[in-house]
Amino acid sequence: MFESMNRRDLLKVGAGGLSVLALGGGVGGAFAADARTLKINTLASAAAVNVPMQSALRSGLGKISGFTAAEVRPTAKIPQIAQEVIAGSADLGDADVASTLAAAEAGADLKIIGLSYSNTSQVIVVNADKTKSLQEVAKAGGTIAVNSIGDFMYVMLIGVLQKRKIDPKSVNFIEMGSSGDRARALLAGRVDAVPMHVEQAAQLAQKGNFQILVRPWQEYDNWFSAVVMTTGAWLKDDANKAAAVAVLKSILTSFRQTDDDYAWYKSQVAEYASSKELKGADDAFLKPVWSTLTTEIKAFPKTMDELNADQFAKVIPAYKEAGALKGTVDLGKLIDRAYLEQALKELG
């Protein structure tokens, strides 16, 4: 067959092939155009508290008509999440409260429309053989490693130090990447206290006399750490408004399933947690973590009632004291519950 093919036949075959490819692409594109894929920036690592949100974006959202699973874009540097949303290269962000509030105060057109979880699951851990209190750390001019100076855990700690009448300047704060790195630094005795997730604190407790010194949810009503945010300009488009509602519906559904069904949560941890140790955790380890998250910390509120200006106003003084904010941010303008209310109405 090919031996008898002349140049004209070859061109015809080529043109036919290209047409088929173009048509195929067009058909595929038409189907793809029906369902929208949102670009959502999240934290690079998914700890136990981040799993319901990850599940909502990577799996739940695709079950809502008109949407595929989100293009989840893990981000190592926390402030980068909000920066990319402001720059318009991401639709939504699972951003930290500190950088979102700071950007809004600086004039960025931002809206907080939901919670990635309520109340942080990070706690301050010390080696109890060496340190019994924050007073001891401060007296010895000790060192506390945080992810970054000015982030929500740094601010939380400054607030706790001030509540205990300890001068924050008597403590050396240093920046240290991931919570795993910080746990190892504490284990090696290089630092005196570190924030880490509750499940990591439980793991570390198996290695020695490492105890939790500060539980943010006991210090504050709600210590917000991560929120669902976007820009006001993005929310002007009707299609984007519907997308915001869909994302919140997916998150609320995931929160409710997490609260009600440990087996489901465990399956999602195996799927979406970043750490191999957490992915493979057995019930003896994971169930107490789930219990702490859902009942003690109340990390996954079924209706996100906590998302309001009054609750946020309670944490602003700590940010102001820490120098992370001037305190001029207009919370009424920044927090927009309209999409949350719509999502709650549709979910019933």
Binding site: A44, A47, T75, A76, K77, G180, R184, K207, S274, L278
Partner: peptide, 23 residues
Amino acid sequence: EMFISAGFGGLLNNAGLDLSTAP
């Protein structure tokens, strides 16, 4: 890749979360 936690950089980020340094 470590900044965007993708590919091999993403694996390094995730391995850093484990308490064991072996991975």
